[in-house]
Design a protein around this nucleic acid. Structure first.
Lengths: 411, 411
DNA sequence: GACATTTGAGAAAGAGGAACACAAACCTTG
DNA sequence: CAAGGTTTGTGTTCCTCTTTCTCAAATGTC
């Protein structure tokens, strides 16, 4: 903020920054590849690639190994691989009924991974930050001493301001206007900044980078846990909105005369497609938690007509809400994640039928609806991807001594 | 497409392109300014600015004039102004009951402007393209011979594919799967490509560049004519979705027990906030057209309780639908345009009340709802802005002889 | 084993902005 | 009205970074 740089004017240095960024991104997202692959993918010349790779290798962000011979003529090109120890991030997740932490190396490989149960209901911010601090300490102790920490990211089941991790609302945790960001930053005391975002947003990011939405640039992910959240990828980048509160699809009004919602409104989508609605329709206590949902899933799998009908009705409402979002966003792909992923086979028919009725033909022809592919860890992996973002955007800043003029000026 | 350039690798040429683009954009969007203003806004050095401006002046995209003395010490800096004749676009609009065409110069000033009435109801694509061709011919004849045409854009009241102007659905015109793009390109026979987009999307673009949303990077515009359309600005850029079908807020399902919609679904937002709904609630024939809406507006202005109640109910439904969109998008600003702009004072209270109930507190605190400021011509002006986009993105391509290798290769 | 093919290596060239020194044009001050 | 301070245009040199070009190395094919 104090730098005052307008970012409008470009110079030679900008070029180098952009090219290094392109290479590191390519390696991080697509994995090891030969130098000549990088030449074709970036459009740069062999000489330019050589210089840039040399810099990355010297800075421990990449390493080169002899080519794997593939039987084609010509001199073999050495394989460049992202160095998982050269740049590591810590990822955290505050979910409905668990906490998780992981260390992820450049290239996206999880190096360490821990998850602990969280008692359902209200937990104080201090309880959670100290539990996360313990997880972080355990994980850091297991990392090799050569590992270089370059960032940290946190996924939170709630409405959170990305800038500073202020939680506006997290009904599952009983939070309202809690300064999670400040507290966690203090409790973890890391040498790098911590980034924050909503769990659904980060699940979308992870699925876009490494899951079912890979290579697809316009994606809507719907994440069902107790409530229903959403994450958006638009033109290949996460849509955050003005402050990071975007994607709250759970609170689209779909039934103005519907049931009261935890947010204070009535007839939110969440009240029709959340787990309570499913349990209610299946004739079970709506507060059953995810074990109860699993039971309904099992019953549906066994052909139980009441369970199947409950899913069918949920699918109908899923379709109604999705139709609105699809008409507004025109995505290529809709992903159903969290508790909705295993429900997919049972909601599919009624969901698609509502889309056929309610989505404009032009958009309907383009959009597919499928379950996610990364499972329950998607938000955690997304938090890691979020944490990598500054490095990917400007690797040059990590290749120079950390005490640059810019660093001193901003301190 | 055929160029095969990855756009990933940067080079010195990229820097120049980006810097020229920054300058031309700044001039186009903010109007004439001194060279030293450009220095501070772009962060480039005086030397660099001088060279770039020189190139723009030589290419007739800008001109320099003596400084306006403002009483401050120091050598006065010459004023650089975009040259309205150096780069002109043609803009077209196919609206509900009129056709319009305009010529707009770099800097955004309309040089010529024509609008003709269109008989309500079905019109063939050929009727409309030939009418537009006549308008275009008239306007081109009035332009100075030095004017250089650099693009053309068309706003259409319907669901249209941006890539090629294929109209999927335009109920107001009675169109379905009509190849407007091909026909108009043939009929106009312009030396530049024609861009296409939905009228609401372009109204949003225009309001963002030159209207009430200037400088605000996350905007949702709702445009009411017969139906209801929407346009989105996200992170300062138009959100188009995968094919350009985004922003169809009129077809968000809001009322499960609602009326049938022209799109084939039921309970779409449009059925509750479109002009038919207003007229119905005001006890008038729903097919009255915009004269009838104006009559209700006048009645409300005079204090007629039935008209006021009709607007209040419309406002309530406006709030319900907007709440969903705001929760999903987290915009800073919502603009009400088209027929909704004059309704604003009469819908405001009930609309805001629904937002208070239904929008998550975090987003609610950030968002404001106001009417548009450019009036009925917003889509037309947006079409001009759309047409300018290629020039603004890469002015260098217009400064060199048109028959570059790239142009030959793509031909 | 000769030859085509692909790629790495290294030096020279080219493009473009930054840095610096200086001159020009304005203001203020006595 | 002249001197001095301030801001900005001008022109030259320098620096950064990529491309271009040439040659050598490593592989497959005949």
């Amino acid at each position: 903020m104090l730098s005052g740089r307008d970012e409008l004017g470009h110079r030679s240095e900008t070029v180098r920054r952009a090219n290094l960024s392109a290479i590191v991104r390519e390696l991080h997202e697509s994995g090891p590849m030969s130098r000549s692959d990088l030449v074709t993918r970036t459009g740069l010349t062999r000489s330019a690639i050589r210089g840039l790779i040399g810099e990355l290798v010297a800075g421990d962000l990449a390493s080169e190994s002899p080519a794997a011979l593939d039987g084609t003529p010509g001199r073999p090109s050495p394989v460049v691989r992202p160095d998982p120890n050269g740049a590591i991030v810590l990822a955290f997740e505050i979910a409905v009924d668990s906490l998780a932490a992981a260390a992820v190396g450049l290239g996206g490989r999880p190096l360490e991974h821990l998850r602990i149960d969280l008692p359902r209901g209200r937990s104080s911010v201090d309880d959670i930050t100290s539990a996360l601090a313990e997880l972080a300490a355990t994980i850091r102790a297991r990392l090799p001493s050569t590992a270089t920490l370059v960032g940290a990211g946190t996924a939170v089941v709630g409405v959170i301001r990305r800038r500073d991790g202020m939680v506006s609302m997290a009904p599952n945790l009983g939070w309202r206007d809690e300064p999670l960001g400040d507290r966690l930053t203090t409790a973890l005391d890391l040498p790098v900044p911590i980034a924050f975002a909503n769990e659904s947003d980060l699940a979308a990011l992870a699925e876009h980078r490494r899951g079912a939405a890979r290579g697809i640039d316009d994606v809507l992910l719907v994440w069902g846990s107790v409530g229903v959240g959403g994450g958006l990828i638009v033109d290949g980048a996460p849509l955050t909105g003005s402050a990071g509160y975007s994607g709250e699809v759970g609170h689209i009004p779909v039934n103005p005369d519907g049931l009261p919602c935890r947010c204070g409104s009535t007839g939110c989508w969440e009240t029709e497609v959340g787990s309570s609605a499913l349990l209610r329709r299946a004739g079970r206590p709506p507060e059953g938690g995810h074990e109860a949902v699993d039971a309904v899933l099992a019953a549906a799998g066994a052909g139980d007509p009441i369970a199947l009908a409950a899913f069918a009705e949920t699918g109908r409402w899923l379709g109604i809400g999705l139709a609105g979002a699809i008409n507004v966003l025109n995505p290529d792909l809709v992903l159903l994640g969290g508790r909705l992923a295993p429900s997919y086979p049972f909601v599919r028919l009624t969901l698609e039928a509502e889309l056929d009725r309610r989505v404009l033909r032009a958009s309907r022809r383009l959009v597919r609806v499928v379950p996610t592919s990364l499972g329950e860890d998607a938000p955690l992996l997304g938090a890691a991807e979020l944490a990598f973002e500054p490095l990917l955007a400007d690797p040059a800043a990590w290749l120079r001594p950390r005490h640059t003029l810019a660093a001193l000026a901003s301190a």
